[in-house]
């Protein structure tokens, strides 16, 4: 039997455990756990779209009511010249900004809480924990695809065809937004475990975001200095502006602000992943 009083009160510092996390290794683990992500995403979607017709209707309800409200109250009070949009109907101007914003907001809003909501799994099985927030980003992707129905219907009702340039730019713009969204979702979901108050603050911030992001107003109307500054803080500004230029006007997007947005998004993604991996080791202790 061991004499228990010979144990020092604290571990000697030389044996302290340092979790080595390499970015590449983590990504490999994550790719191997893709089935976990798909299962969680699938599950969430199945609950949401259980009744096929109604499910889709609910997914469309939010963007449609928002576009109608904005168009009715704001569209008729702002002269379309002030949007720098020539004769593009306000509803189209609005929906092109609303969809990227809604994607971001729902991914962060649901994904941010995903660790708290899955604590029974986080607590008991060993897997890369980022599968939980990333699965919710996946859900937001599907929701956004479904809401395309509303976008198409709006374009049809205004008898306007989107410009093909938008299709060309779709891939980089979507990637850009995915990087930013994933980075923010990872950061929020990890921090929320340590500081639960974020749970109360998050909806407020997201509510502010719909006004602070150029959903109802035009990014191109900002002064150049403001545009540059804004792009560093919120990459969604230049992204939405780029969608509007390409789809609605058939013009090439502003590459300067877009480049800044890319840098910011990349920093969010890498930083968010790092923060997440740093805090991951203590999740099970705190949940």
């Amino acid at each position: 039997m061991r004499a228990l009083d010979t144990i020092p009160p604290e571990p000697p510092p030389e044996i302290a455990f340092h979790r080595r996390v390499s970015l590449l290794g983590s990504v490999v683990d994550l790719v191997r756990s893709y089935e976990m992500v798909t299962t969680l995403t699938e599950r969430e979607l199945r609950i949401r779209y259980k009744q096929a017709i109604l499910g889709v209707a609910w997914a469309l309800l939010q963007p449609i009511t928002l576009v109608l409200t904005f168009t009715f109250f704001i569209g008729r009070t702002i002269p379309s010249d002030d949007l720098g949009m020539h004769n593009v109907p306000y509803a189209l101007f609005n929906v092109v900004g609303l969809i990227p914003w809604t994607f971001f907001a729902s991914a962060v809003g649901v994904g941010g809480l995903s660790l708290l909501q899955n604590l029974q799994l986080v607590n008991k099985i060993s897997c890369p924990r980022e599968v939980f927030p990333l699965a919710m980003v996946g859900v937001a992707v599907v929701d956004t695809i479904v809401s395309m129905v509303a976008v198409i219907a709006l374009f049809a009702s205004k008898q306007t065809a989107p410009h093909l340039l938008g299709v060309v730019w779709a891939v980089p713009l979507i990637l850009l937004e995915l990087m930013f969204t994933a980075g923010v979702t990872l950061t929020v979901s990890a921090l929320i475990v340590h500081v639960r108050d974020i749970r109360q603050v998050l909806p407020v911030v997201l509510q502010m975001g719909i006004v602070a992001t150029p959903v109802i107003w035009s990014f191109s109307k900002l002064t150049r200095v403001w545009q540059i500054g804004y792009s560093v803080v919120n990459p969604l500004g230049p992204v939405i502006d780029a969608w509007r230029s390409t789809i609605l006007l058939g013009r090439a997007p502003d590459l300067t602000t877009l480049a800044l947005a890319t840098v910011t998004s990349l920093l969010w993604l890498l930083g968010g992943f790092r923060i997440f991996k740093r805090l991951e080791a203590s999740f099970a202790d705190l949940l």
């Binding site: 571990p11 302290a16 455990f17 607590n123 099985i125 080791a281 202790d285």
Partner: peptide, 8 residues
């Protein structure tokens, strides 16, 4: 599921 503070 958990990580130790010290040791291997």
């Amino acid at each position: 599921v958990m990580y130790p503070n010290a040791g291997r």
